[in-house]
Design a protein around this nucleic acid. Structure first.
Lengths: 130, 130, 130, 130
DNA sequence: GTGGTCTAGACCACA
DNA sequence: GTGGTCTAGACCACG
């Protein structure tokens, strides 16, 4: 759960993305509770309101449900929703990258090589920094 | 030179990115002038100040140089700078995508498949909308 | 924080220089916030946009980092960056002066005398107006 | 006569400064003509209007005088005027540098060291690039 | 409250 | 004509 306060992407979205990834990865199982607002706020050194907004985001996406006075829980379909959303996000990122490369005049072979190189480097020994 | 005023990415950055890509692709050659602030402003239906901020961005990157009273010109090393910046941007986008996929629990084979599918679809018979 | 609106050097650069000097001198410590855009704007009797441009300048130099909704903070390495930048600026000014003197045909001894005289007058019992 | 079109200092001032330095150094003697507008314009790759403005500057300073249809000539007192102006310019540059150093929190000894180092490097073997 | 973007319009210096 | 600066004021997203 690494948050970068200096990033251009809003903190609440960073939190939401991180939780979404965690649910997709099975860290939080359907039916399990997410950390409380306060706990999460302390963990990422952030205002509880910001965590609230992140949880709202997830709830709106149908990934979690909140129960008054008890907390927020991963929805039954939460895992699949998270996985779909994650794949969609990755796909969009890739499409953006390809489009940027094309606009800059890179040839398809160049683009393929670049993709291959990045994949090679990041998945070969699978040191996926959390 | 397509600008989306409703995008979450600032207009001035969209302009800067578009010009950078154009320089990388050889549309504007080193020594040649970019469209004047006012001309570009008219072209993209935007305030001249916004265009100037975009040009400022490019100037700080060493891609262009401005001469008061004359215009903004592509720097001698502008083309190579633009190509490097473009490749760096694409590379970063890819790395972000891979990292997101890994965080979401996707296996290397899954990631490779996804990358391959996107590449296939977007570069086959490459109709790269300009 | 003295700003001269009639100077040939842009206000936003005067502000940036003043803040840079303040950081170099330890007035603002790493981790501490700069005055808010609006507060600084009031202080120097200038439009907030002008202050923001000054802060942008400092941010690009890696001297400060801005966090939307929170403020602008001196970067961890901000103090050293500021000191380096300050020394570089002074050095460049000196080199320019020497070069100008040489082009005007002044002999090394003359130049040394002139340097010594200025130094003497300005650093003896240094009443360095802040 | 090196002109930098990308500098923040106006070309006409760069030309005026260069000519002033040349007069101070005795390259152009009192009574001698300066290069014609067109000749100078060709030499520095600049619009004749720009050279005109530079010459106007010098004339206003009493450094040269223009004679209708004959050209501009170094004034009798031109050499001394140029030397005074040059020294004044250098002195001001030095004072600015000292003030900047003081604002950045440098101690007098540090400033003296810096001055000494720059002087040492630039005047020791006196390779004063023209 | 904070910073960030954009506009409209003014004025300036320069070539 | 060009680029550069500044203002006033609006609107937005974020914390």
């Amino acid at each position: 759960m690494n948050i970068d306060p200096g990033s251009h992407v809003p903190i609440y979205l960073q939190i939401a993305d991180a939780v979404r990834a965690a649910v997709a990865a099975g860290v939080y199982q359907p039916g399990e509770p997410l950390p409380s607002l306060r706990a999460m706020a302390v963990e990422v050194h952030v205002n509880p309101n910001t965590v609230q907004r992140a949880y709202d985001e997830l709830q709106q996406a149908g990934l979690v449900g909140s129960q008054r006075g008890r907390g927020v829980f991963v929805a039954d379909r939460g895992a699949s929703v998270a996985r779909l959303a994650a794949e969609l996000g990755v796909r969009r990122g890739l499409e953006e990258a390809v489009r940027a490369a094309q606009l800059a005049g890179m040839d398809p072979p160049q683009i393929r090589d670049l993709f291959g190189a990045v994949l090679e480097r990041m998945t070969h020994e699978g040191r996926q920094s959390s």
